[in-house]
Nucleic acid binder design. Sequence first.
DNA 1: TGTTAGCACTCATTGAAGGAGAGTGCTAAC
DNA 2: GTTAGCACTCTCCTTCAATGAGTGCTAACA
Lengths: 341, 341
Amino acid sequence: MGLDERKFLILQAIIDDYITTAMPVGSRTISRKAGVGFSPATIRNEMSDLEELGYLAQPHTSAGRVPSYKAYRLYVDKLLKAGQLTGEERQKIAQHMQTRSRQVETVIRRAARVLSDATKYTSVVVAPHIGSLRIRHVQIVPVSSGTAMLIIVTSAGIVKDAVINIPEGLSADHLYGISRMLTERLAGQPIESVRQIFAEIIRDMGNERKLLAETMQVIEENIAAVDDRDVYVGGSANLLNYPEYSDVDKAKNFLAVLESRDTLRRVMGDGGDMEITIRIGPENGVPELSDCSVLTASYRMGDQSTGTLGIIGPTRMNYSRVVTVLGFMGRAISQLLSDNK
Amino acid sequence: MGLDERKFLILQAIIDDYITTAMPVGSRTISRKAGVGFSPATIRNEMSDLEELGYLAQPHTSAGRVPSYKAYRLYVDKLLKAGQLTGEERQKIAQHMQTRSRQVETVIRRAARVLSDATKYTSVVVAPHIGSLRIRHVQIVPVSSGTAMLIIVTSAGIVKDAVINIPEGLSADHLYGISRMLTERLAGQPIESVRQIFAEIIRDMGNERKLLAETMQVIEENIAAVDDRDVYVGGSANLLNYPEYSDVDKAKNFLAVLESRDTLRRVMGDGGDMEITIRIGPENGVPELSDCSVLTASYRMGDQSTGTLGIIGPTRMNYSRVVTVLGFMGRAISQLLSDNK
DNA sequence: TGTTAGCACTCATTGAAGGAGAGTGCTAAC
DNA sequence: GTTAGCACTCTCCTTCAATGAGTGCTAACA
């Protein structure tokens, strides 16, 4: 028993209906729809078949049918067609993305909000990331006597800062010199070789040993935290709009996941290339999100760095709409973060 | 009709009970409590008086009484005594705050989580802030041909970064020189006078006019965003533990507030000095939070910068517990962010 | 005069009972 | 192969009465 055209049609109708209503769909409802010329009884037979094939499920005997993950997968693979935003909508998004500041953080944060507003789901945007991270610049800035702030700029344009102790009596000029030296030696080097270079530096000049030891440590921490890209969430309250989260425990679970940056980074994955990735239900690999779908796209910043943007919502989400918005937003962010003003 | 000792006692008993149960409190319940030697009838009379005085309210005729804002205010002002954390608890907090990294962001983020875990409410921590912000350091780092990253370090140790366009063909050395010049001219200057100094710089050297114009603009944006301290929220899911948020609309409202960094900064206020500030219900000035209480304390980073940490929860929160935890955490954060390692 | 026991009354909450309605599966007719 | 008809299932909503927590008032008590 395969999936003939009629089954396809009916399955699509069921999914479409379920996406908007979140209620089990009955045969009568489908029969009444335009484009379907069959009686409820016929539909029932087909639905029965579809259930046996694993595309539909029945919450209880006398209820309508609900699509399964398998159905959504089919829907997304075969039936989904990316739409087009209306001119009005593009304009609205562009307007909301407009910001005088070009701070990376501002742009990304704003993007998260716009994404969640436009889709009514929860959005997640991960800051730019690059495959082989290199150090671009190192700077030590005095904060108070005995403490300084270490700033490391990576090739992805990510800035890391940390408080470090410095020996008393080091002048600002002195720190400036050290910063310059460190930058000279470290710039362009991949993170992996930092440790070795440091060993060399320390061998060459034993003078500021104490300072260097701590700088070293902080840099090493940043190596460990190389995957520690910032994550911004938008529209966390949106989930409460959907009946599947009227169960308090589910909602709590979801919110807890949104607070775990590690989990978010994991579920958002790499973004890959510009293509849009769709993970339905358990496919996203995070048990707490097993009845959610995660859609991700990527954006570029400059030549090498890429970041990920995505939407998390119920499996019965409006895939077509989300795919459209994600694609558009990916391009919009890339443009804002790259040089073509 | 004033508040004699017995009324005090009864009011306290009612509040204590309501804080733990969230249910209207009846006269029998109070009568049964240890330390209260009166019959329900007597309590009823007193409760009736307390209601007339505005300390209690009745959801409906045949229900018990519920404390009003006025009652909480009295409770906090007169009856609240700060507790002491158990040794075990201190240890647990210290352990959770422990982090190899001394990145300001890491410490603060962790603090937000620990705070919400320890209190079971929602926590907010605002990054350090200083009264008169000064520029400490300016650095321009090339990112790709045509773009660079502008980094500004302020006296509060806050780092701001932004993508800027630069004229093609500017070498890294050239940028280094410009950065150094800018730092020399701007370091130690209050934000207010940046604009004027820039005018001077531009007059002095017309060569990199284009670059400077944009740098100028970005710095000006950062002036506008001087109050744009980072805000970290912990335990946003905690609110769902409390029956007052089983109403979906209320929960949604609350979550929306948590996403508005501006509102959070406003409601968190200045933190003031080390003292703990308690704002009950409408006192916090944010209409969406008019049935929440906001407790804030402050922490110090280095000599001048101060930040705010706080708890947002239902008005019937466990004030004593929260005050204790906030005090302890304020000191803990200060210690971690200051130089005494 | 303050305190308490007693009592009638109020009102939210709970659970059972009984439709109403949406949906199904099956059978038989077209 | 398709459809009409029908008996059946099961959830959901409404109604209704019982329950019980709580109140206010009155009268008795110390």
